[in-house]
Write a protein that binds this DNA or RNA. Structure first.
Lengths: 203, 203
DNA sequence: GAGATAATAGTACAGTCGTGCTATTCTAGT
DNA sequence: ACTAGAATAGCACGACTGTACTATTATCTC
């Protein structure tokens, strides 16, 4: 990857596109606007993608790669079980706090934008978020199997709650610009996990 | 209100505008699109507002009125304390589930859209969500004062968590079209409140 | 280093955007 | 019922949209 000039510029364009999409939106992100932001000509940039929809799809894929690199991969370093569940949530909150994308989580932004806009772009966003949710659920499931979390609540339901905390911190920070919400989210995740630790009497 | 013809059409336009904004976005909602959706001429509709920004502001205000009527007012019927906290959360989830707005919670949608777009529209959305959060927090605080919830967690932090559950159900339903998330959210709220009930030994 | 080809720019076009202006139709108070 | 004024429509404008097509320049391969 990134051997030829074309691949390098394409990569740079998509970096810019993903960032801009979180600030100004993915749908209204025009070719002209993106060309201006990257210092290219409209047609020169356009030639890399062939259509606006292809540009949007490439941007979603690029953002997905970044999300995996920033959240999933680091958390995979943690051992299976409770540690990994915590790592996933923590990395997710971190990713919002560090503003990997300047307008907050790319998939939070774009999922709201494309919720009701059927088509391949929406499908790709949905697929990405589905796999995130199922990955988090699997991590919870493994922690329960290992006896590190009780099964008082299903893995899916707990994953729902943990994800909700992270998402809420992202949304509220972007709107209110209050960094305290990240601590709120971390504490919420921590307390919830702590409340589900098996009693010390367990095997 | 709604005495003159102008006020009636304006009301109808804003109903349509708020609904469309949750499906197609508030920013990209063009005068032409809205005129088509209401069966009016572009200029006839435009004359009601004078500028697109005024239309957007009026739409936000209209949506806020609807939110108050659908969520806040009904919950005010519940007595102060835990009952009202529960009512607020339940009505909020209901409001998402019944699709008062076809694309989900108006303020969830538009806040992501206008997060990074400074201006009066963003300000009005932020103000509305701020007042929602502080209203919910005050309700939690009253429940704690009444001794119906422990103070093991601050009112603001608990309100953060409760709101997160409701918001998550709205977002996930819109994306995955799975009505089960509303039960997940209700159960999450219920369990969290239950976990904070004072022990029976209390006064 | 020359030749093939990839990468970028220039220009043009029909469509839509927000918003003026003018003209017409309808409504509300008398 | 008549009239003042509100409400709506018609049309025009420059700016911007996505996307052709052609021309030019830079980059890789041998």
């Amino acid at each position: 990857m990134l051997n030829t000039k074309g691949e390098r510029t394409k990569h740079a364009i998509l970096d810019r596109a993903a960032a801009l999409a979180t600030q100004e939106g993915l749908a209204p992100l025009s070719i002209g606007r993106l060309a201006e932001a990257t210092g290219m000509s409209k047609s020169g940039l356009f030639a890399h993608f062939g259509s606006k929809e292809e540009l949007q799809l490439a941007t979603v894929d690029h953002a997905a790669t970044m999300f995996v690199a920033e959240v999933i991969e680091p958390a995979r370093a943690a051992p299976r079980g409770l540690a990994r569940v915590w790592a996933l949530c923590d990395r997710m909150i971190d990713y919002a706090e560090r503003q990997v994308f300047p307008g907050g989580c790319f998939f939070a932004c774009t999922s709201f934008e494309f919720n009701n806009q059927p088509g391949p772009v929406r499908d790709r966003i949905e697929e990405m978020l589905r796999s995130w949710h199922s990955y988090l659920e699997r991590a919870v499931d493994q922690a329960q199997d290992a006896g590190e979390l009780t099964t008082a609540i299903g893995a899916r339901e707990l994953a729902f709650q943990l994800d909700a905390f992270a998402q809420a911190s992202n949304a509220q920070f972007q709107l209110f610009r209050d960094t305290g919400v990240f601590d709120d989210a971390r504490r919420a995740v921590h307390d919830r996990l702590e409340s589900l630790r098996p009693t010390s009497a367990a095997a």
